[in-house]
């Protein structure tokens, strides 16, 4: 118990002090890191039922477009539009997953891609209200009552709070009976069906909950960037999301977050090689899928065990 609390406290302190440890221009990276943490964890939640979706980045876009349109056209305040866009995204997520419940595995993967692409093409096609290929601009920046969240540091802390709440809720779901049911469905859907678990219902539930949090991440992103367009939610970015989850691994709850952090660090280190970035990402993806499937969260405990065996260094890790 105390080990857990102290671990969380250390992570909390690190995240709270990060803005003061980096140069101001790096704040952008930190904020994007928080979006990606929510996004990757929500993607992992969908994956626990065994359904790999290829539409999650578009689902995030639904949140971004909803919040942008709600604040721009309806003039609702940001604090209201944030949860509402989460709900809108969850609803659209339901519409996407419902026809896919007959498919499994690769069919689900490709089918989700097709329906996601369809949603994305709607944004490209209809200038009113989605702005067509150029997207939406002049999205109001985030503010809550008198607090202006336009500046990077306040916005960072706001996102940190939202990310912490979102991840905490997803953690509770993962630990609950519902989370167990998701994982059981992944392992043996036929058995689950015969003990009265309505498998399609739970698969849809995982997708919809995942969509809700992806929508929250998208809404935060929209107000941060001030402008969004359909290119922000292309398949290429979906591959990056897959990289986070594959690198981190889905065996344990924190795998996806680990993947996001590791990849963000790698991308920052290789910043001078900007145009080579996709190549690096591609190599890492292939490396993890081919050489070490299971990702870091399977690899790390093994490495830790090795470390513990070394006298002297071992004590540091126990």
């Amino acid at each position: 118990m105390w080990k857990k609390i102290s671990g969380l406290a250390i992570i909390g302190i690190i995240f709270c002090s990060l803005p003061y440890m980096v140069e101001l221009y790096r704040m952008e990276v930190l904020i994007v890191l928080l979006f990606n943490l929510i996004l990757a964890q929500s993607y992992r939640l969908v994956n626990t039922t065994g359904d790999w979706s290829l539409s999650h980045i578009v689902v995030m876009g639904v949140g971004a477009y909803s919040s942008a349109l709600i604040t721009k056209l309806l003039g609702w305040p940001f604090w209201l539009s944030l949860p509402v866009s989460g709900l809108v995204t969850a609803f659209i997520g339901f519409l996407i997953v419902f026809p896919l419940l007959r498919t499994i595995g690769f069919g689900f993967f490709i089918g989700s891609f097709a329906l996601g692409e369809f949603v994305r093409l709607i944004w490209v096609k209809f200038r009113d209200p989605f702005g067509g290929p150029r997207g939406l601009i002049n999205i109001p920046s985030a503010e809550i009552g008198p607090i202006d969240l336009y500046q990077p540091i306040p916005f960072y802390y706001f996102c940190l709070i939202i990310a912490a709440i979102s991840i905490w809720i997803m953690y509770r779901i993962d630990r609950s009976h519902i989370g167990d049911t998701f994982k059981a469905i992944h392992t043996d859907p036929v058995l689950c069906e015969t003990i009265g678990i309505r498998v399609p219902r739970y698969r849809a539930m995982a997708f919809v909950i995942g969509a809700f949090f992806a929508g929250i991440a998208g809404a935060l992103m929209a107000h941060h960037q001030g402008a969004i367009d359909p290119h922000n939610f292309e398949a290429t970015l979906m591959v990056y999301l897959i990289i986070y989850v594959v690198v981190g691994g889905i065996e344990t709850f924190w795998g996806a977050a680990l993947g996001v952090i590791v990849m963000t660090v790698i991308f920052e280190i290789t910043r001078p090689l900007e145009e080579w970035r996709p190549l690096i990402a591609g190599c890492i993806l292939i490396l993890f899928l081919v050489v070490m499937p299971g990702g870091l969260d399977v690899l790390l405990p093994k490495t830790m065990k090795l470390f513990r065996k070394i006298p002297g260094i071992g004590q540091l890790f126990t």
Binding site: D180, K183, A184, T187, D188, V190, L191, T194
Partner: peptide, 12 residues
């Protein structure tokens, strides 16, 4: 019902 095969959740 139960199954002839080992129908259990193997990783639990």
């Amino acid at each position: 019902r139960t199954f002839q095969r080992d129908a259990v959740i193997h990783d639990f």
